[in-house]
């Protein structure tokens, strides 16, 4: 009888690589924190930690949606534009109350997601092309809605969203944490989550297995749009202004970076939610470290590139047999 599948201890090299793939991001974060504690004055202060976490919260939220999309072997380039759209919509509807304004902003994100998802799922447009349309068009629309102007936001309830805390933790961070848990639960525990991953792993097989492939794809893009809109709302609250021309610029790249560094392969079929959060944190931490030591942002970008390469290399190593 053929016995190709027998558990055998792996040698040290392969084990190290597997470990790096699974925990490399976390190890890197831990190492960076230790280094900072030693070399960066005032790093461990509450104030600094709060600032870092508040800054990274929108990236985390957008990255969660991006991780789902990438899990289906897709990509969503429109997330930055969705943030712009959300921020453009808010001042228009603040007159009806904060709740209404936020709701409209979120509906805007869902609408963009519906268009993206429909193009991908029903018209079979490649994700990169479909979402590129809204990457361009979405921000254009946002600027039209806002009349191309930056508007200050004065509504105190909304501003509280960006600045108040829950048991000492800034609200945006709480929102990001709750969403992380929710998305992780969706991926792990729901039919939708399992189907999403399978579709990314082998779409033909998923169709043949009777999975509602189109519905799942549509929903994935809707979720990505929704999450990007949430990030847009939080960013607006924190910046105390609606600036659709600059909010969320390059956000799609930050999100993709976080997802990839977190160990989710661009080829789909796997989603690592916690890894994605860690990926976003790592990038933030690197940037903060370099800036605190008076190195320009451009250096941070180059370091970011190295981290992406390292992540992709580690991911490849495991499948290179």
């Amino acid at each position: 009888m053929s016995d190709t599948a027998v558990a055998l201890p792996r040698p040290a090299g392969a084990r190290t690589l597997a470990w790096l793939q699974n925990y490399g991001v976390y190890a890197a974060i831990a190492a960076l924190i230790v280094v900072n504690i030693v070399i960066t004055p005032h790093f461990i202060s509450t104030e600094n930690l709060r600032t870092q976490l508040v800054q990274v919260a929108p990236v985390v939220i957008v990255s969660l949606g991006m991780a789902l999309v990438i899990g289906t072997e897709g990509v969503d380039l429109s997330v930055g534009s969705v943030m712009a759209l959300a921020t453009a919509l808010i001042p228009l509807y603040l007159g009806y109350g904060v709740g209404a304004a936020i709701l409209v902003a979120l509906v805007g994100g869902v609408a963009v997601g519906l268009v993206n998802g429909s193009l991908v799922a029903f018209v079979n447009v490649q994700p990169i092309v479909a979402t590129l349309c809204l990457f361009v068009g979405g921000r254009g629309l946002a600027l039209v809605i806002a009349g191309g102007r930056l508007k200050d936001v004065h509504d105190t309830t909304l501003l509280d969203l960006g600045s108040s805390s829950l048991v000492g933790i800034p609200l945006p961070v709480v929102v990001a944490a709750v969403l992380t848990v929710l998305v992780a639960g969706v991926v792990r525990r729901t039919t939708f989550g399992r189907q999403l991953v399978a579709i990314g792993g082998n779409r033909t097989a998923s169709v043949l297995s009777g999975l509602p492939v189109r519905r799942v794809l549509l929903l994935v893009y809707v979720l990505s749009g929704l999450l990007a809109a949430v990030a847009g709302v939080l960013a607006t609250a924190r910046l105390q202004a609606s600036d659709p021309s600059s909010l969320g610029l390059l956000m799609e790249l930050s999100a993709i970076t976080a997802v990839v560094v977190g160990g989710t392969p661009l080829t789909g079929g796997r989603v690592r939610v916690l890894g994605t959060v860690a990926g976003a944190l790592l990038i933030q931490l690197v940037r903060a470290t370099l800036i605190k030591h008076n190195l320009p942002d451009s250096v941070a970008q180059m370091v970011q590139a190295v981290i992406i390469l390292a992540a992709v290399y580690a991911a490849r190593g495991g499948t290179g047999r």
């Binding site: 991953v197 792993g201 097989a205 043949l208």
Partner: peptide, 13 residues
């Protein structure tokens, strides 16, 4: 390979 297994998933999934 192309139409059956989902290579990224476990036997169980």
């Amino acid at each position: 390979k192309a139409e059956g297994i989902v290579p990224t998933l476990s036997v169980r999934d």
